Simulated assay, not measured.
Amino acid sequence: MTERALRLGTRRSKLAMAQSGHVADAVRQLTGRPVELVEITTYGDTSREHLAQIGGTGVFVAALRDALLAGEVDFAVHSLKDLPTAQHPELVLAAIPKREDPRDVLIARDGITLDRLPKGARVGTGSPRRMAQLHAYARSHGLEITCVPIRGNIDTRVGYVHSGELDAVVLAAAGLNRIGGTAELTGSLSLDHLSVDSVLPAPGQGALAIECPASDAELVATLAALDDPHTRAAVTAERSLLAALEAGCSAPVGALADLLADDPGHGQVVTEMRLRGVVGTTDGSTLVQLSTTGPVPTSHDEAMALGRELADEMLAKGAAGLMGERAL
């Protein structure tokens, strides 16, 4: 008798379907069982307001979690950066697969790169984090830009540049990589992958979260085979920083944990983790940007401690006062 198909809950967007499709393939290969995608519409998909206005934390997640708890799906795939930092008591983060490129990418007309944005350039982004860092970069490099709040799927956002309404948009590189067909989507537009020294990504950016009911011990154990320990340690530290700052995913907070090798180019033995964090006002006038380095965490608690340590330092430097500002 054929085992019933595992039901994977996913948002309906092109990117979400692509991400979930990759996970479904991995689970099929792992288990030999069929996996079917169950499309679910979330509040974040239907609301036309900007995320900062609707309180971005969890707006793309709640409906998927409701379906898990109701038994309508067996597991769900989220973009980790959309997931609230507080874990749901009845659900478990069964796997965090190997992370994609965490950087942001500037997609622009006429071969424009970040350092060559023309005077008055209109740059589209719906992220207060990106606005804060783009404005700060512009200030420090003598550039004059305007960040324009936008929403929509990847095609819609890139379309603003094709149409000439905007000079550039900033998106997550991971999303572009996962949907494929970047050349067809961007056409003559240029892609400038932004250095994390200039623009830190959102905590957890580039990583996926595979969530399922804690009560399904067999499925939890099965999905755990897809987990990447280094990715989990890095994003746990980043999300711990976000939680300790008492900020949500729509706050102007960036964070990235790097794994550092003791002999780059030769043994690549990972010995330390560097965690960088930034908080800023969306006009870029003030940034608090700090980093800390420590041994690679070997447990959840150690990764959490690394994030809290850096958050404490940032709060002592005035970070809390910068997070009340939101881009509307």
Rank of each mutant, 00 (worst) to 15 (best):
A224W: 05
G126D: 11
G44F: 02
A174I: 04
E90T: 13
D197M: 00
E272P: 04
R7F: 13
A247L: 11
E313G: 09
L106Y: 06
V105G: 10
S198Q: 13
A237Q: 09
A138Q: 00
A108V: 01
A243P: 01
R326W: 09
V161R: 08
Q87P: 02
S215I: 02
T10E: 12
Q133M: 13
E39Y: 01
R122F: 06
V279M: 00
V148C: 10
L189R: 09
E3G: 12
R129Y: 03
E36T: 14
T57M: 06
A174E: 07
G58W: 08
K81E: 15
M314F: 02
V288C: 05
Q133N: 06
V196P: 06
I150M: 11
G267V: 06
D101K: 06
L223F: 07
T271S: 11
G120Q: 02
A207P: 00
R12K: 15
T222R: 10
V199Y: 01
G142C: 07
L51E: 15
E309R: 12
V253A: 08
G71E: 11
R4K: 15
V220A: 12
L176H: 08
I150Q: 10
I107H: 08
V23F: 01
V288R: 04
D262W: 05
L322C: 04
S79G: 11
R122L: 14
R99G: 12
S163F: 05
H50W: 14
V77Y: 05
S299Y: 10
P295E: 09
L143R: 11
H230S: 15
A172T: 08
D197K: 03
T113M: 07
S299Q: 01
A237C: 09
T46N: 00
R7L: 15
A132Y: 01
L176A: 07
D82Y: 08
G21S: 04
T125H: 00
R139G: 01
E246V: 13
G55F: 07
N177E: 09
V73C: 09
M17P: 00
V59R: 10
T286G: 04
V105D: 05
V27H: 07
K317C: 13
L287F: 03
T282D: 00
V35N: 04
K317P: 01
L256S: 01
G152W: 14
R11K: 04
G187W: 03
T222L: 15
L245D: 01
G56V: 06
Y43S: 12
G56I: 05
L226I: 09
N177V: 07
